[in-house]
Simulated scan of single mutants.
Amino acid sequence: MDARAPTAEIIRAARVLAARRLLLSAAPGWAFSAEGLAALHGGAFLAPWEGEAEKPMASDEPDGEGAFGDDGEPAPDDPLAAELAALDAALARTERALERRPAVDPESRDPLVYDLDWDEDERLAHWRDAVEFTSGLPPVLAAALTAALWDDIEPLQHVPWLGRLLAAALLRQRGKTKSHLLCVNSGARAVPRLRLKQADPVAKILFWLAAILAAAEQGLRDHDRWLLARASRVGKLSGRRGNSHLPQALDLALARPIVTAELLAQELKVSARAGQNLIAELGLRELTGRRRYRAWGIL
């Protein structure tokens, strides 16, 4: 949580994280099905504060009066009206996903931001047909081609990062990463960008192969660090009572990139003060450098 308004970078990071969680929570082959692509195309990965999805539908009429003003809008200070508006927004997002409609309708797109001649449905179908031809290739090569084809075809405007997640989803579908999504973006940052900028298709494929290799090596190093961090703190768990929350707090700190006292209190059903005590006992490192809205990490 930050006192300032979210920046464009934070919004984009939230969209990537939401898309990763959506892909990981679904079945391995869901991302490449018609339903999965429709959900991703429909903006199911939008951040909660982003776009028109959080606004109630204009055609919805309230069942009663009092919580709404004369113009049908919810009263600004009425909590019930805010809950009803949030429910309407969730229903609107569900209907958009079921109807396979984009989060921002083409008719309402700003020509200064979007290319109105960009046929996303046709480009997405072209990309999907091209990916189907990679079914007979080795999984890693197929994933590299998936990412390269997304960069070349550009099915969705302003969403270049989705192709990297779909490449990771393909590796999970083909059984190479059964329990997680590979961080292909992390590997791409570690590989020189010169290969990607070249027009040679072979150079682009080699770039994504190198990115997948770098991401796999980075994942192994992170895994070793997590095991070492857990092993160094296992001694603090010995001699504890059976109802101690410290083992659960350690598992939660390993499962999350950052934790807060409020998060520990909510997940472990303890007080906020007890959450702070658990953080101190585990010796977690403070990551924000602030007095308020602090967060800790195990590494």
Rank of each mutant, 00 (worst) to 15 (best):
A249P: 02
P160E: 12
V184G: 09
A210M: 05
L37M: 08
A103N: 03
G72K: 07
L237N: 07
P111M: 10
Y293F: 14
E267A: 15
E217I: 13
R233Q: 04
T94Q: 00
A90F: 08
R20D: 07
E95M: 04
A75M: 14
E107K: 09
R100C: 02
A86V: 08
V159R: 00
A8W: 03
A26T: 01
A210T: 06
L268A: 05
P111I: 07
Q173N: 08
A5M: 13
L227V: 09
A144M: 02
A47W: 07
R221S: 05
A85D: 10
I153E: 07
L112T: 15
R292K: 12
R15K: 13
D251G: 08
N243I: 01
G283M: 07
S179C: 03
A19S: 04
R20K: 11
L170K: 12
F45P: 00
L196H: 03
L268T: 06
G64L: 13
D117I: 02
R4S: 02
M1K: 06
E54Y: 11
P106C: 04
W226Y: 07
Q173Y: 14
A231I: 01
A3I: 14
D78W: 06
A92Q: 03
R15H: 06
R240H: 02
L17Y: 00
I205D: 00
L141S: 08
K55D: 05
D71K: 00
G275S: 10
Y114V: 13
D224Q: 08
Q157P: 02
G283E: 10
E52R: 14
R290W: 08
A199M: 10
R20H: 06
S186C: 14
V259K: 02
E9F: 01
D71Q: 04
V202A: 12
E217V: 15
W127R: 13
I258R: 03
P6L: 15
I298T: 08
G283S: 10
K204I: 08
V131G: 01
